[in-house]
Amino acid sequence: MNIFRLAGDLSHLLAIILLLIKIWKTRSCAGISGKSQILFAVVYVSRYLDLVTTFISLYNTLMKLVFITSSFATLYLMYVKFKATYDHNHDSFRIEFLLLPCFVLALLINASFTPLEVLWTFSIYLEAVAILPQLFLVSKTGEAESITSHYLFALGSYRALYLLNWIYRYYAEGHYDLIAIFAGAIQTILYCDFFYLYITKVLKGKKLQLPA
C-alpha cells in the first residue's frame, strides 16, 4: 500500500458515497445512468469472487464488500425505490456492445486461462468502459448537476491515482501488470474531456453544461 493507492481507493469510496447521497437527498436518480451502474455491479461481482477463495487483508475484504453492497444499493434505489425519476429515454446506451467485446477480449488476453482469472480480467476490461453510458447520458442531456459532476470527478480520479500507484510500484517493487495498466490508461483517457469541463466550469461555480 502506498499513498497513491490509498488516495485512489478513498477517491473511489468517495465517488460511491457521493452518488448515494445525491440519490437519497434529492430523492431522484435523474441524470444518472442505470446502465453504467449495472456495469459497475457486474465489474465488482466478477472481480471480487476471490472474496470466497483468498484472504488478503481485512482492509481488502471490507472494501470489496462495501463496493459490492453499495453498487447493489444504488441499483435498488434507481430501479425500485426511485424508479419514477429514472431517466429511461436518455439512458439508451446498448450495454451488450460493451459486455460482449470485453468478455471475448478477456478470453483471448489474460494472465491464465482459468474461470476466476478470466472473470477478473473481464472485470478489468469492463471497468475501463463502464462509464461510457453515463458520459453518453450527460452528452445527450447536455448537462450534469454539480453533485453528479463531483461523483464523476472522484470516480475518474480513482483510476488516474491507480496509474500513479502502478508507476510507483514499478519503481519500488518491480511490479507491473500490463492488463491492468492498459485498461486503467484507457479508463482514465475516457474521463479527460470531462476532467477538462469539470476544472474549467464546475470548480468555478458554474453548472456543467456542454457547448451546444
Binding site: T54, S57, N60, N165, E173, H175, Y176, A180
Partner: peptide
C-alpha cells in the same frame, strides 16, 4: 508471483 500481486488491489 508477478500477476498475483495485482489481486491485492481493488
Amino acid at each position: 508471483m508477478q500477476h498475483e500481486n495485482s489481486h491485492d488491489e481493488l
